[in-house]
């Protein structure tokens, strides 16, 4: 029995409509905003399909960071695309129709949506669902798999973020001092007090997400993004100069690198204690306890790197002068 909810059908149709609007739009600001909405609706769909952690992350990343960075890029460059290049192009259209047709051909032997007998549900997943509670000892299976069974992937993911920020440091940091941006809001007393009151709350929420990832959706990545959001808010109200006094380039670099090193060190320590790389079971006398400790530490490493990377990205894009 195929169980395809109406909400699923409607949301997917929405996504298609938005994508086609993006194709047609000449105004890039509007296109970027639609991309943000696209991400939000995707996040809703992920919720519908039970992927709560993914929904959380997609909302934070797609509707949050990506949109902010794209808008700042447009502010630094130009906001309209040249209509000369906005025609319907026949050759690319034929190419994508051909590829699309091939892909549709490939779907016919796929297991049906929601089928509990599909190979992915019967082969690897049962162990995660039935035994991760005993082997790793935390309720959120996604966190168990991400932090322990496939922790090496997550280490790679942290390294990807680290790599990207090295690139942005290389590309955008300008030895010449930039014009200070974002000073305008400073005089508004309500905003200032409001922000001062709000920032600690956001940070506490970030910590909650950081350490509650074992039990509910959340974890280092989401926490890092939320923590960075607090700093971004602070910067918008109090100006870049004040924010940069706290988060100097040197300190940010230290944190960015430190998080990756913390992650790696957990793995190295487990090797020194006789386990394989990232085998947390050896970290404490009781293997499950060790798993807890290991996941806590590596999530902290992820959180530190991600928060520092997001703040660095924001500073680098904001400090950049308009050409």
């Amino acid at each position: 029995m195929i169980n395809l909810g109406l909400i699923d059908v409607v949301l997917l149709a929405f996504l298609v409509a938005i994508t086609w609007a993006i194709i047609q739009l000449r105004d890039l600001f509007a296109a970027v905003m639609l991309t943000g909405i696209f991400s939000l609706i995707s996040a809703c769909l992920f919720m519908v399909m039970d992927a709560v952690d993914v929904a959380f992350t997609e909302a934070a990343v797609g509707a949050g960071i990506s949109t902010v960075l794209m808008l700042r890029t447009l502010a630094l460059t130009s906001g309209r695309s040249n209509p000369r290049f906005n025609r319907l192009e026949l050759a690319p259209l034929l190419v994508v129709i051909a590829i699309g047709a091939a892909l549709v051909y490939g779907t016919f032997d796929m297991p049906r949506y929601g089928d509990p007998q599909a190979p992915i549900h019967t082969y690897m997943a049962p162990r995660f669902i039935e035994q991760s509670g005993d082997e790793v000892g935390i309720p959120n299976i996604v966190t168990s798999v991400l932090g322990s069974y496939r922790s090496y992937d997550t280490f790679g993911e942290t390294t990807v973020v680290f790599t990207a920020v090295i690139g942005v440091f290389l590309l955008l940091s300008d030895p010449r001092r930039g014009r200070r941006a974002g000073d305008a809001l400073r005089d508004d007393i309500i905003l200032r007090i409001g922000t001062k009151a709000l920032v600690p709350f956001i940070m506490v929420f970030a910590l909650y997400v950081q350490f509650h990832g074992d039990y509910g959706p959340g974890g280092g990545f989401q926490a890092g993004v939320i923590f960075a959001a607090a700093i971004v808010l602070y910067t918008l109200v109090f100006g870049l100069a004040r924010a940069e006094k706290i988060f100097r380039r040197r300190r940010l670099e230290l944190l960015v690198a430190g998080g990756v090193l913390l992650y790696g060190t957990v793995g190295v320590v487990s090797m020194a204690l006789g386990g394989n790389f990232l085998d947390y079971s050896v970290l404490a006398h009781d293997p499950v306890h060790g798993q807890h400790l290991g996941i806590l530490l590596i999530e902290l490493g992820v959180g530190i790197t991600v928060a520092a990377v997001m703040v660095s990205l924001f500073f680098l894009f904001v400090r950049r002068r308009q050409v």
């Binding site: 952690d53 993914v54 669902i129 991400l146």
Partner: peptide, 20 residues
């Protein structure tokens, strides 16, 4: 849970690529 784990990584890779 496995596709969720994989896609968390993919989203992060996506935003890293976008920033660059």
């Amino acid at each position: 849970p496995v596709p969720h784990v994989l896609m968390l990584t993919a989203i992060v890779v996506g935003v890293a690529t976008l920033a660059l």
